[in-house]
Design a protein around this nucleic acid. Structure first.
Lengths: 333, 333
DNA sequence: TTGTAAGCGTTATCAC
DNA sequence: GTGATAACGCTTACAA
């Protein structure tokens, strides 16, 4: 169980260690015979380079660290796909760690990631305080995804939540809705912009906003609907803070004998795989997740390789995905 | 942007590099005064140990590599939680990489993980050929989760799919169902045991198995139901190969004007977060996912630290979670 | 084109 | 307790 080293390969191929090193980094200045011999020896020994030793010696790193705040959320999986795509193209490896939505655990994940001395770090929706981030940013380039920041040393990639909410409201208004409530995400990341966008869009249409306090879960969505029904203030359409909340809302509406979308229309946010299920078929707002990842990786590489120092702020446009939970009000369809 | 080293800390604290090293590994044989001085200097400099250099020098690794075949599947997130829990307890760090369900990408992920020379590797439902796994197992300890293996050098952690299917059938039979079809997972991992368990359980009850070819997606589940309806062979109950398939089946049943569970009962498999949504509320088979992770990490640590060499094969018991998609047949409820 | 030797940041083995 | 010094596996001038 002891892994072969360059020395072993060199011995077996009858060359020096340095030459093996050249072959491994496929330098052009190695004769074909020697190269073949080295490759053969490496193959036979099952040798593969030791990334840490390499990075130590070369004083460079081809590793990008990725901190995923919540592995349970498929949202991040697609962002990672985007990161992975760009990183691989550019010859970088990624290592992932997860924070489990707990600041303490996330802190540990960050430290662990940094102990590998990666070229840079991409943080997906981190929950640690901003000071922890700016402190880390003193040591290496950092890109934040799905979390805004004013720290001038970090880049950010976000979706324009205000515009997303506006798209949803415009859609509902164009269907004929006038009374549209927003089930608010409370403290959740991105809840602020979505709420502001909702209020602004309603007012732009001359309508009265109705913000209902809720959370990013299906039970919270159901609870909010029940309170609306009890207070007799149920509108004809709902904009939920995310897809889970929307599914909870739909289920509570159906429990109350109301039909979606005939009696009430519902719009989600995020276009998770849940929304696409035919059983749900939720009208929702899509964020270009893989693009988030690609831009984040690109931003990091610009700092790492091209030495960029001014921060970049990507604000991506979400889009509306119309499915089967929205229709004109009052069953007019 | 240049990270401080032990040398810097030593200089600042007015001690030798070796002493700093001792403090960092909190050795008991350092005077309190010196320790405090070193810690203070490290803090001021923002110093944290260099994991790669440490591992290189100590010829040991406190890193566990985790390959997640599909980050989009929340199933793995909980397994990772279990791994993380045990690893942290025992002073190990984990680094994650993903294979995106593509053998080529997975191979790359495996190589990348190995280049960090981790103490061992945990592979979650890998799709690479068995030979690739046994080759890797020559270099370091490997544990496979959700994929069986006969390679004597690797440990495995799986759920007992046959028993899971049996639990579902026993439940349906006890409700009074006699005609129960299985929507089969085809080539998918774990589809085999579930199918065998279904057939065996049906025969044990003196019933005729009805296996319908399908896949692990909601559209496939819907398609299978439509074909059953068209052929006039729709039974009173369905055991799906997984939750997605079950949700697709439910949706197709409702589209056809049938009620679930009044007209047809449906059981899923996996107890994903989807099943728990109140809008779905699916009766399903639960696998102890976090336990998978814990056992996998423990198995790895036994090899790494205690030098165990005989393989272990964990086969965990699934359990039945009854929700609202199962009832006695014929709307007798 | 190939080999030699000096590091990279750390731990480990000794002396003191 | 504390401090030199030799590894660890690799890269990289610099020589040959």
């Amino acid at each position: 169980m002891v892994r072969p080293t360059m020395e072993d390969v060199a011995l077996r191929a009858g060359v020096s260690r340095a030459l093996v090193s050249l072959v491994m980094r496929n330098s052009p200045k190695v004769s074909d015979v020697r190269r073949a011999a080295v490759l053969k020896a490496a193959e036979e020994l099952g040798y593969s380079p030791h990334a840490m030793a390499r990075s130590l010696a070369s004083r460079t790193s081809t590793v990008l660290g990725v901190m995923v705040s919540d592995l349970h959320n498929a949202f991040f999986a697609e962002v990672v796909d985007g990161i992975d795509e760009v990183a691989r193209e550019q010859g970088f490896d990624i290592i992932i760690n997860t924070g489990g939505r707990s600041p303490a655990r996330e802190r540990r994940a960050l430290e662990s990631l940094q102990s590998f001395r990666p070229a840079g770090l991409i943080l997906l929706s981190p929950v640690v305080p901003a000071t922890a981030i700016s402190k880390a940013a003193e040591q290496l380039p950092i890109v934040l995804v799905a979390r805004p920041s004013r720290v001038s040393t970090v880049d950010t990639v976000n979706d324009d939540g205000e515009q997303g909410a506006r798209l949803a409201i415009d859609h509902l208004v164009s269907l004929g809705h006038r009374r549209i409530a927003h089930l608010d995400g409370g403290e959740g990341t991105q809840a602020g912009p979505r709420r502001r966008g909702y209020v602004a869009a309603m007012e732009a249409h001359g309508l009265t906003p109705q913000v209902v306090s809720s959370e990013y879960t299906d039970t919270a969505g159901a609870r909010a609907i029940r309170s609306l029904i009890e207070s007799g203030t149920l509108p004809t359409a709902i904009l939920s803070c995310n897809d889970f909340n929307a599914v909870g809302a739909i289920s509570a509406l159906e429990d109350a004998g109301l039909r979606v979308p005939a009696d009430v229309s519902v719009v989600g946010y995020d276009n998770t795989s849940l929304a696409a299920l035919r059983h749900v078929s939720l009208t929702t707002i899509d964020q270009p997740r893989a693009e988030f990842g690609r831009l984040a990786a690109l931003a990091l590489l610009q700092r790492v390789r091209d030495g960029r120092t001014e921060p970049v702020r990507h604000l991506l446009n979400p889009s509306l995905v119309v499915r089967n939970t929205t229709a004109p009000p009052g069953g007019l369809r």
